[in-house]
């Protein structure tokens, strides 16, 4: 078990290394191949009116004049050991884990990230609760009433749910529920959970439901397929042969088998979502990680981009690890291996 965890940890570090190197390369090497010099890259961060001297100073300050690997080593050192930054007027120490300072705002990236993370996490967790509950119940119902009207109707809805893009449903939902009918909070509203949990839920309700619509459709289909397969298993026949009530057969014996594979998919989805629900966040004007990433990319703000990328990758990895550990809890066959 310990060996397993250590192996997973090493794999995670390796993965984060690769992800950061790739992000770094895209940022530096691609412009270089396109003919950009350190100075021409630095112009983006000083404005058009700056003199060549200022531009060059900025390029030096941001490290653009160093070779690629030195820049990467500096950044990596910050992550592990902390790093001092020359802010032009003063030297600031950024303690580990340091994700650097924004090129644009000269603010440290990490506190910003953590701040944005709470928003995205709030969005993801609420939506997940809704889509898991709704998706699984619809899926089970469909499977048990296979071929019935309920089944066909819900599968059509599911197909629609999967097909409709979130920015479209999001805008439609906002315009009706929020602006025309005033049932829900307006776009962009967000109250931290710690301040007022009720308001937190109220503000996020519409994004939750909209996001959940997309996923619950997918989960309903998966649950239905899993359920249909499981209900044909020999052990279900055994459960019935014992004289169990059909309800117990379905909930205790059927669902347990059908839902285990869903765990993997849920881990992936949730991990990805925490990395930034870009479309949902932009549709509802939420200041989450997704929006942060978009802002970073628009402004060519490398530390921001790197920070978000690593954060996202880390969460996908963590979510997968949790799923794998949960598997051992759910399936005793995995445990003994």
């Amino acid at each position: 078990m310990v060996a397993y965890l250590i192996r997973r940890l090493l794999a995670t570090i390796g993965l984060l290394f690769v992800v950061s190197v790739i992000t770094f390369s895209i940022f530096f090497l691609v412009p270089k191949w396109a003919g950009a010099t350190p100075d021409s890259m630095a112009t983006r961060y000083v404005g058009r009116t700056a003199t060549a001297d200022v531009v060059h100073q900025t390029a030096v300050r941001l490290g653009f004049t160093d070779p690629f690997y030195v820049q990467y080593a500096d950044w990596a050192k910050g992550l592990v050991a902390g790093r001092d930054f020359d802010m032009g007027t003063s030297i600031e120490h950024c303690p580990a884990p340091c994700l650097g300072y924004s090129f644009i705002t000269a603010q440290p990236v990490l506190p910003d990230l953590l701040d944005r993370f709470t928003v995205t996490f709030s969005l993801a967790i609420g939506a997940a609760v809704i889509w898991v509950t709704a998706g699984i119940s619809i899926g089970v119902l469909s499977a048990l009433k296979r071929g019935s009207l309920v089944d066909r109707f819900s599968m059509v809805i599911a197909l629609a749910g999967v097909s409709m893009p979130i920015f479209w449903t999001g805008l439609i939902a906002l315009s009706f529920f929020s602006y025309r009918w005033g049932i829900t909070a307006v776009g962009g509203a967000y109250t931290p959970f710690t301040q007022n949990p009720a308001l937190w839920a109220w503000d996020l309700m519409l994004p939750w439901v909209t996001l959940a619509l997309l996923f619950s459709a997918q989960y309903a289909r998966l649950t239905r397929a899993g359920m249909l397969e499981t209900m044909n298993e020999d052990y279900i026949r055994t459960a019935r042969a014992k004289g169990l009530r059909e309800r117990t057969v379905v909930t205790k014996h059927g669902l347990r088998g059908a839902l285990t594979p869903l765990l993997t998919i849920f881990g992936l989805d949730f991990g990805l979502l925490i990395g930034g629900a870009v479309l949902t966040e932009s549709a509802f004007g939420l200041n989450g990680l997704g929006k942060y990433a978009v802002d970073g990319i628009r402004a060519n703000d490398l530390p921001k981009i790197l920070g978000v990328t690593l954060f996202a990758a880390l969460f996908v990895v963590i979510a997968n690890l949790i799923v794998d550990l949960l598997y051992a809890v759910v399936d005793p066959r995995v445990r003994t291996k």
């Binding site: 052990y235 042969a241 004289g243 009530r245 347990r256 399936d331």
Partner: peptide, 27 residues
Amino acid sequence: SDEEVRRMRGKRMAMIFQDPLSAMHPY
């Protein structure tokens, strides 16, 4: 009725199957 037969199953008549590995719930 289904409910009457269910009450009989296991008590009046019971069954064992071919492949005991798949016939028992793995979890």
